[in-house]
Simulated assay, not measured.
Amino acid sequence: MSATSINIQFTLNGERVSADVEPHHTILDVLRQQFALYGARESCGQGLCGCCTVIVNGESVSG
């Protein structure tokens, strides 16, 4: 954990987890790099195509 990162805790696929997150990390960075979840990915870079869509609190959001 670097001086600028923060530790967040959340429920991921029904399991309580934590992650050290840098200010520039996206939700996709965290899911892919720290939890090896590769289903959502960046494609268009604008959230228009749907590749980066994840469910947060029951709502679809662009990652």
Rank of each mutant, 00 (worst) to 15 (best):
M1N: 13
M1Q: 13
M1P: 10
A3Q: 14
A3N: 13
T4E: 15
T4M: 07
T4F: 11
T4D: 15
I8R: 08
Q9S: 13
T11P: 00
L12N: 00
N13F: 01
N13V: 03
G14P: 02
G14Y: 04
G14W: 04
V17K: 02
V17S: 01
V17P: 02
S18K: 11
S18Q: 13
S18P: 00
A19D: 06
A19F: 06
D20V: 04
D20Y: 07
V21M: 04
P23F: 02
H24E: 14
H25Y: 14
H25W: 13
T26W: 01
I27N: 12
I27T: 11
L28Y: 02
V30Y: 02
L31Y: 07
L31E: 10
R32S: 10
Q33I: 04
Q34F: 08
Q34H: 01
F35A: 00
F35M: 01
A36W: 00
L37A: 05
L37P: 08
Y38D: 14
G39H: 11
A40C: 09
A40N: 04
A40M: 02
A40P: 05
R41S: 15
E42W: 04
S43V: 10
C44N: 00
G45F: 09
Q46M: 15
Q46R: 10
G47Y: 07
L48K: 02
G50R: 12
G50L: 11
C52R: 03
C52P: 03
C52K: 05
V54H: 08
V54E: 04
I55E: 13
N57A: 12
G58I: 09
E59I: 01
S60Q: 13
V61M: 10
V61Y: 05
V61I: 13
S62L: 13
G63V: 05
